[in-house]
Design a protein around this nucleic acid. Sequence first.
DNA 1: ATCTCATATGGGATCGATCTCACAAGTTGG
DNA 2: CCAACTTGTGAGATCGATCCCATATGAGAT
Lengths: 351, 351
Amino acid sequence: MVERVVPIPSARRPTLIDIARECGLSRATVARALSGKGYVDLDRRRLIQETADRLGYRTSTIARALRTQRTSSVGVLIADITNPIFPQIVKGIDEIVSSDGHTIFLSNTDEDPQKQVAIVRSLLDRQVDGIVMVSQTLADETLKLLEHGPPCVFVNRRPYEGVDYVGPDNEQGIELLLTHLRGLGHQRIAYVSGPSHSSTSRERLAHFRVSMAACGLEVDERLVFAGNYYKESGAKAAEAFMAVTPRPTAILAANDFVALGIVGYLHSIGLNTPADISVTGFDDMFDSSLMETEALKVEGLTTVNQPKRHLGRAAGKLLLERLGAPDAPGRKVILPTELRIRHTTGPVRKG
Amino acid sequence: MVERVVPIPSARRPTLIDIARECGLSRATVARALSGKGYVDLDRRRLIQETADRLGYRTSTIARALRTQRTSSVGVLIADITNPIFPQIVKGIDEIVSSDGHTIFLSNTDEDPQKQVAIVRSLLDRQVDGIVMVSQTLADETLKLLEHGPPCVFVNRRPYEGVDYVGPDNEQGIELLLTHLRGLGHQRIAYVSGPSHSSTSRERLAHFRVSMAACGLEVDERLVFAGNYYKESGAKAAEAFMAVTPRPTAILAANDFVALGIVGYLHSIGLNTPADISVTGFDDMFDSSLMETEALKVEGLTTVNQPKRHLGRAAGKLLLERLGAPDAPGRKVILPTELRIRHTTGPVRKG
DNA sequence: ATCTCATATGGGATCGATCTCACAAGTTGG
DNA sequence: CCAACTTGTGAGATCGATCCCATATGAGAT
């Protein structure tokens, strides 16, 4: 007979069984002791806890997830992590959900519908407990996938009414900007919008018209440009506007990137802000406390700040509450914005 | 006898068993067909694939992970997602590892050792296949945890020799800056270092001394300030330097934040860059293509660019290769930096 | 004829925790 | 004295995929 080989005490992670064996008890009892639910003799409970600590036992989240069908993980989709607006939103989400024991799967979609679908599919495969969509325009296939998926909260863009949604008060933001410009005497005001598939972009544009009318100002359709949120569209818009007579005295941009494009183009043709023309942005990309320096405020762009961190936190809260009440009606959280007057707006030039 | 209730075709995700039943085959055969490994009759293979598609079958990554002990996920630790240097590194990592089917758990440690330990523990609980530590100073407990953990790649800070490490060429970067300043006639040069627990910070400081000596310049110890990478320490350092006579004509900062602090303080006491004094940074925080605008180059800070995206990609590659060869020796990847001359450095003032 | 192989399939164990259920013993109350 | 309840324990099924092994068949080799 071959001599029995004593098994080497392997370095593998200990399991419930190891503790059970060590304590001379059953898995069930050990499980009850460690989870704290169910009856276990006090002394044994202590013994179990001690051996667990001694062996360095950690419960396998994978096994637990398989059994309970909950993973304590949430997926977050953003367009591009290097766009400074998103990290702050993600941070807000993280602060809330991680305090509840959830870990974040973060993925960039790069505004690519294919990629969006692939990522959502992968998140569903991983059975995340919830998903947060930040500034995502949903592909049809994504929508279909989500129908049978876990709870989902939308930030900044809303595919349709009735979903859980968190966004800035776009209408109030536009109003703040227009009131500011009105106060400086501007009347001939241009607007560069974002893409029409973004609900936030549509809201801003729509309210630009409403708000102009409310101020008794007319919107010259030649001074409304359909952009795409990127710098280049700002430059193109500015070029187009400069060909219109009379020229606008102020330009509202749908976001800060676009405003930068506008300012850049104007400089390139020898026009200065705010002396020759006023320009405003939206978002206030760099309001991170880390960079609290005027130098960093995007060359002093007058803009409207949206509370990115708070948007994230609100989204996180909405998601957690949704996990507790899957059938409650969808909710909408709209957070106020703040006017940040810097150096790209000034009184209208007499002439 | 109670009438047998026909089970409602539940909306739950189909499993291997459902397909097996549907096709009149065993789980094993279905598994072989779908995984593509092992023998399966061609016609049946097609049938199985079709029913899988029809039922919308997706293999459960959780069950697979439990069985195979591999999760196709990696953890990434950064200090703070809102610090613009990190998103770019993360993006680089993501590009590589996600193309290999891995998903990223992203967590902020906020430079808090407690949090770092908690996060690593949580990642180990989730059995990530690997970990990337970006700019992390490792707590003792973290190190202990990692000993029995999955492969780990370090970016920017190295706990000790022999680990997989990716970092910028700090020595070359310092040299570029000093050569530049030397060329402008500067001789009395101050240095504000980062925290001594950062290997990158130590390298930069050490090489400042080496490089000064190589240029035949003396280092006045009153002009070496131990900072912490944050703006405030830059301001403090500048204040201290201004009290030294003769004053320095140039200040090297360990990173861009510190440089901003220095510039901010100098402005506040009426000194201008580069007219009165030259200042340089390190990192080139805002080199994202999204923000390719001079306005955003941190008020034209002269600095050294480290290839953040590439650092991330290199780290991702190192990790993937490590997963394939757990016992290979540790590797070190050092990527070159580039001088970015902007508007905070100029010829030394005659006086 | 027997012996290999390659092809093909299914049974059953396994990963590790959770949960239901049965059961035992002791306690209270009517 | 028995019902009802609390406390305590363990056996065994379950979550869903993977994988080892036993088994079966037909082709080709000897």
